[in-house]
Nucleic acid binder design. Structure first.
Lengths: 218, 218
DNA sequence: ATTACTAATCGCCGAGTAA
DNA sequence: TTTACTCGGCGATTAGTAA
């Protein structure tokens, strides 16, 4: 489909030529698109030719209406733009499944953490974390996560031990809902920690060294 | 902005050239847009000239990324399409304010109805309805409402009296949120009933015989 | 493989104008 | 007023090709 004609259909749609025939003069249409009356006239003829509009030429002013076919084309354009602006709020990070140090279980067993995850993320996390080792160029994305605004998790003291704060982002890993955690005191690290309602490693059959992608919602 | 260049920016955005520079060959880009490699090359040069993309030409494959300015243009396109497809889901009906028969108050006082309106429409309706008499050509739109899917309100029995079900649609009348009700057993009728959190007649200073428009969300 | 130049062609644009 | 024709001009496209 020619971009010029799509543009013309878009203008007609904005004028309301969707449910009914509406009066649109070629000069008005031209002005709206920043082209001459003559060019607008040509475009209308092309749209008619392609079966994208119907016309009532009975009255002194022509009446135009977009066809179903035209609306389908416009909707596919709309879908593209939706994709773009939903994608903009998403960050995809590739990482390799890494053996945990067993620390994840210890941290995620702390009731003070669990309580916050339940209320702030909306799920009760499985006690344990899936560690992803991030390589090379992908590491710039970790930097983005460190500086972005996420859901805040407060630190606390339990007994004589201090547990640090963190912020996290909802995410999905192979279509399974999860979240990634960025510790507040995160010195340089190439490991991304993922938590979920499920035991991700078992549920997805993951093995050490396997490459996965996490889609993170910013 | 030229439609051809907007189209090119859209393709680049779909390829993810938003947050980072991504490798895109001119032949691949041309294929995606249905033009030749040469044309794609020219378009890239034009986008560079206009400050709409930046390029790393260091590697064997050029790397492209859209600028802020480009994203603003794409977002305005997105906004246009949103307008179109929100508009499409809206039906505007003209009607004349009609004196009620006092029935509205009786119905809307039934707690079984009110409960459903609260939970399904999100507001507690003022006990009473505003009746609009629909004339002539506009009546076809009532037919659309009867056949469309709306929010279902269940009928019930209170004492020895049966109250019928209905379906309704969120709407707005002079920018005041409201809803229109279509009784399930709606024999032919030229009256449209409007409910709202407010007493519409008073809030909007409506008088019998006044012409108003309701924007109904399908 | 790439990118992008040249040159020829295609087709879009708009002034003038008819109906 | 409309719509839409002709036609000169120029921008857009592409095949061929260089680097």
């Amino acid at each position: 489909m020619k971009p010029n004609l799509v543009e013309t259909m878009k203008e007609l749609a904005l004028l309301g030529a969707i449910h009914e025939h509406i009066p649109v003069s070629t000069s008005k249409l031209g002005r709206l698109m920043g082209v001459s009356q003559q060019s607008a006239s040509v475009r209308i003829l092309q749209l008619l030719e392609a079966g994208l509009i119907t016309r009532n030429l009975a009255a002194r002013r022509q009446q135009l209406r977009l066809t179903e076919k035209a609306m389908e084309i416009l909707h596919s354009m709309y879908a593209s733009y939706q994709k773009i602006f939903e994608m903009e709020a998403t960050l995809t990070v590739k990482g390799v499944v890494d053996h945990g140090l067993g620390e994840g279980f210890y941290y995620m067993s702390q009731e003070d953490y669990r309580k916050q995850f339940r209320s702030k993320l909306g799920f009760d996390p499985y006690p344990g974390t899936l560690n992803l080792k991030i390589k090379g160029r992908e590491m710039g994305k970790l930097e983005v996560l460190r500086t972005a605004d996420g859901v805040q998790i407060e630190g606390f003291i339990n007994g004589n031990r201090t547990f640090g704060g963190a912020h996290c982002f909802l995410a999905s890993l192979s279509d399974v809902d999860c979240a990634v955690i960025i510790p507040v005191r995160s010195h340089y690290s190439d490991v991304l920690e993922v938590i979920s309602r499920h035991h991700l490693r078992r549920k997805l059959g993951l093995k050490d060294g396997e490459l996965v992608e996490v889609d993170i919602t910013l």
